[in-house]
């Protein structure tokens, strides 16, 4: 029984350490995407770095070229918007005023060259499109970069 108790206490200590490492580590490493503002702030150090940027597709910014399959648009976090260029086929849900996450690099011209577009959708489901589209993109209780 004594041995078991030691085992249990040891296990709990390992567990606490593990949760600390996971929580702390993920805060640092698992920033799944940066916002346009964050990208702007570290534009120089991010040059040539493969990264993800997320935001809302700015209304009126989307220019499609169906012949060449190119898309130009801006992503915004409410503060600033960042221009994006993409060649390929975006997901069906990708449209103006909705959330999107793009993967790629900052080009020499300051335009984000996306190699992939992912569309984000809300947790609301309805047969009618009566709800106003979400205005915020990042979680309410979001973790913010220092």
């Amino acid at each position: 029984m004594q041995r078991n108790r030691r085992f249990l206490i040891g296990g709990l200590i390992i567990l606490a350490a593990l949760s600390y490492v996971i929580y702390g580590g993920m805060q640092e490493a698992l920033v799944y995407f940066v916002t346009p503002s964050e990208l702007k702030a570290k534009e120089r150090s991010s040059a040539d770095k493969f990264l993800r940027m997320g935001g809302m597709v700015v209304k009126g910014s989307l220019q499609k070229d169906h012949k060449n399959l190119t898309y130009r648009f801006e992503l915004t976090d409410g503060a600033i918007s960042y221009p994006v260029f993409f060649r390929g086929i975006p997901p069906d849900l990708f449209s103006e005023g909705t959330g999107a996450v793009v993967e790629g690099r900052i080009g020499t011209d300051g335009v984000f060259q996306a190699s992939l577009i992912m569309a984000k959708h809300a947790e609301e489901y309805s047969p009618h499109q009566d709800k106003a589209p979400p205005t915020s993109f990042v979680p309410a209780k979001e973790y913010t970069l220092q």
């Binding site: 920033v31 799944y32 997320g54 996450v101 959708h121 947790e123 990042v138 979680p139 309410a140 973790y143």
Partner: peptide, 13 residues
Amino acid sequence: SVYWWRTLHQPPS
């Protein structure tokens, strides 16, 4: 996770 970190997955319904 969907509250603490930025994710592609939507929050709970």
